[in-house]
Amino acid sequence: MRGLQGKVGVIAGGARGIGAATARRLAEEGASVVIGDLLADQAEETANAIRAAGGKAIAVMLDGTDAESQAAIVQAAQDEFGGLDFYHSNLAGGTDGDIDALNCPVDVLEKSFAINSKSHFLATQAALPAMLERGGGAMIYTSSGAASGGAPWQVAYPMTKNAIHPLARHVAAKWGKQGIRANVICPGLVLTEAVKLHLTDEYVERGLKAVPHTRLGAPEDIAAAVAFLASDDGAWVNGQVWHVNGGAQMRD
């Protein structure tokens, strides 16, 4: 990718899965990365692996639902690497107990909102001033194909992931003239470590049959899309929701 060499970015939720793959890819492209996660030990392992391969990375404990924690990770990027050029807001979760609208407990909805909506809002509040100070930058949010999939078995996760889309469009519309780009990636079925733990072989087989592709997704597929949106190659992409799913949903 063009223009990633020397850039500085935060990967929130970067300890494993999509976030870790993204941190590795961006470091390979020459960016310096700050890996934030509640899984502090795993985040440090990912940062260590990047450094061992010749990249630049540090790990910071991040509670994405806390404004002070979000501010602290942005400050860490500035202190360690001199600024902030992109922020990949990649937090997701809160699906335990998430069922249909008549039976989903309110506390499950509130937890889902905190992780899947509030954290991205707080990331935006923390990162934008630093990027504006830099003369521009890229907010890249991870949503989900569930946000537009109409699943009958869960309600909170799709609702709260959907909230990211208008957030990104707002950021693009409000600060685009000041060099800020904001885009969303909606992964399809990606076989991360966490997904593999929870999905049966039957579910994976069913998922493969449903997608017009030869395989299901890998974390590196999403990492490639993030790298493009963070790079100068993605300079004219703003306010978009990209579905990276092997064709599972075909959308304008």
Score class of each variant (00 low, 15 high):
Met139Val: 10
Ile140Trp: 10
Leu122Met: 05
Ser119Lys: 02
Ala123Pro: 02
Leu132Ser: 02
Ala127Phe: 01
His120Tyr: 02
Thr142Pro: 04
Gly149Val: 00
Ala130Thr: 09
Ala146Cys: 09
Ala127Ile: 02
Ala146Leu: 14
Gly145Gln: 14
Gly137Ser: 10
Met139Trp: 06
Ser144Arg: 04
Ser148Met: 14
Leu132Gln: 14
Ser143Asn: 13
Leu122Gly: 01
Gln125Asp: 09
Gly137Ala: 07
Ser143Val: 14
Met139Asp: 03
Thr124Met: 14
Leu128Val: 15
Phe121Val: 12
Phe121Asn: 05
Gly149Trp: 10
Gly135Tyr: 05
Ser119Glu: 02
Met139Phe: 10
Ala147Pro: 12
Ile140His: 11
Leu132Val: 03
Gly149Lys: 08
Ala138Gly: 08
Ala123Met: 01
Gly149Pro: 04
Leu132Lys: 14
Leu128Pro: 04
Phe121Ala: 07
Ala127Arg: 01
Ala123Thr: 02
Gln125Arg: 15
Arg134Lys: 15
Lys118Ala: 09
Gly135Ile: 06
Ala146Ile: 04
Thr142Tyr: 08
Gly135Leu: 06
Ala130Glu: 05
Phe121Tyr: 15
Leu128Tyr: 10
Thr124Trp: 10
Pro129Ala: 01
Ser143Trp: 09
Ala130Met: 00
Leu128Thr: 10
Leu128Asn: 10
Gly136Trp: 05
Gly135Phe: 07
Gly149Ser: 08
Ala138Pro: 12
Gly136Asp: 05
Thr124Ala: 13
Ser119His: 02
Gly135Met: 02
Thr142Ala: 12
Ala130Leu: 03
Ser148Trp: 14
Gly145Leu: 14
